[in-house]
Computed example of a mutant assay.
Amino acid sequence: MVLHYHNECIGDLRYLASEPNAIMDEELLAAVVILRFYEELDSPFIEFSTETAVTGLQVFIEAQANLALASLGFRQAVFWVGFRQEFHIAFAQQRPFCLPLSACESFLTWDPAPDHVWVNRLLIICAHAVQYCHDDTLNQNATRYQGLIDLYNRWQQCRPISFSPIYAVDADQTQREIFPRVRYLDDCHILALQSIGLLKILLTAYSPHVPRVGPARRKSLAQVDAKLRATVLEICGVALSNRQSPPALITACVSINTCCEQFSDLTEQQALMEINSITTQETNYWPTSVSKAKLEEVWGWGT
């Protein structure tokens, strides 16, 4: 029933997208972003994005991007929510970024700004990383890769000190702890740290410096797997340490489903599965049964 009405709304929006006045309506833009939340939840479990939702969002955002970025208020806020959604969905589905990055280029500066603006700048870098990894029309060369590294390093050097955690402790292996504890003051800082985690996953998995053949390849792949595991555990640790921010648990689950094949230790698998269950208990909208079945299959729990 929910899916039926969701599709009905998407159909109406596709019809309105052909009307010049409607396509510039900021309230309709907000409606598209809200409706696309359904796809954001399902994204780790479907091979291709829902074309109607993607087209609807892309058409409205392309039409309103320049106006949204040039103004303050509701329209710009909706634009950045849609931008963040697209990054998460593209990351989970391992596909190119479908929203216009060209409109955001002037926004990627290093001038002093409020913290939420620094988060948006980081998301632009993340979107470029998705393009590097998944857009077959671009060259995946070392120069372009280093450019992404340089952008990220510049962001880290220039971002406000408020993005530093107020409390950070590594997992105590002697106490059989799995996740680090990292606490932040504001939701935008949580989003930033977890977005950095997803960015690290992309840059680690698609590094051009991993040997393609030869005796060094196995060692390099083992190092890649170790970095991916550590990054996922960090993303999950942030979510568990900041339970006041439910979206952090969703991001943790996306990272788990994306990198689950890198985890072979049963204790870590059980801890990650517990996060899957906690997310549904605390948010009431994460599709636990589908995610649980996928993890059990990958980890061979049923065999």
Score class of each variant (00 low, 15 high):
residue 68 A to L: 05
residue 273 M to D: 01
residue 91 F to G: 12
residue 217 R to D: 08
residue 196 I to Q: 09
residue 226 A to H: 07
residue 266 L to K: 15
residue 224 V to C: 07
residue 286 W to K: 14
residue 199 L to N: 08
residue 45 F to P: 14
residue 299 W to K: 14
residue 15 Y to N: 07
residue 109 T to D: 14
residue 134 H to N: 08
residue 35 L to E: 04
residue 205 A to Q: 12
residue 137 T to Y: 00
residue 37 F to A: 01
residue 82 G to M: 02
residue 5 Y to D: 10
residue 235 I to D: 01
residue 29 L to P: 12
residue 85 Q to F: 13
residue 165 P to N: 05
residue 174 T to C: 03
residue 119 V to Y: 09
residue 236 C to P: 09
residue 294 K to L: 12
residue 68 A to N: 06
residue 41 L to M: 08
residue 303 T to M: 04
residue 230 A to Q: 08
residue 74 F to I: 07
residue 213 V to S: 11
residue 279 T to V: 04
residue 170 D to C: 04
residue 165 P to R: 03
residue 280 T to C: 08
residue 159 R to H: 13
residue 223 Q to Y: 02
residue 113 A to D: 09
residue 107 F to Q: 11
residue 160 P to F: 05
residue 228 L to W: 00
residue 47 E to Y: 03
residue 276 N to E: 01
residue 161 I to H: 10
residue 291 S to D: 03
residue 291 S to E: 03
residue 210 V to P: 14
residue 50 T to H: 09
residue 203 L to H: 04
residue 233 L to I: 05
residue 106 S to Y: 06
residue 170 D to V: 05
residue 63 A to M: 05
residue 177 E to V: 11
residue 209 H to D: 14
residue 151 L to A: 06
residue 290 V to M: 09
residue 267 T to N: 11
residue 205 A to I: 03
residue 291 S to T: 10
residue 241 S to V: 06
residue 207 S to L: 13
residue 281 Q to A: 11
residue 63 A to P: 02
residue 6 H to G: 13
residue 178 I to T: 15
residue 280 T to R: 14
residue 293 A to F: 04
residue 171 A to E: 03
residue 206 Y to N: 15
residue 289 S to Q: 12
residue 51 E to N: 05
residue 115 D to A: 12
residue 184 Y to C: 07
residue 101 L to A: 02
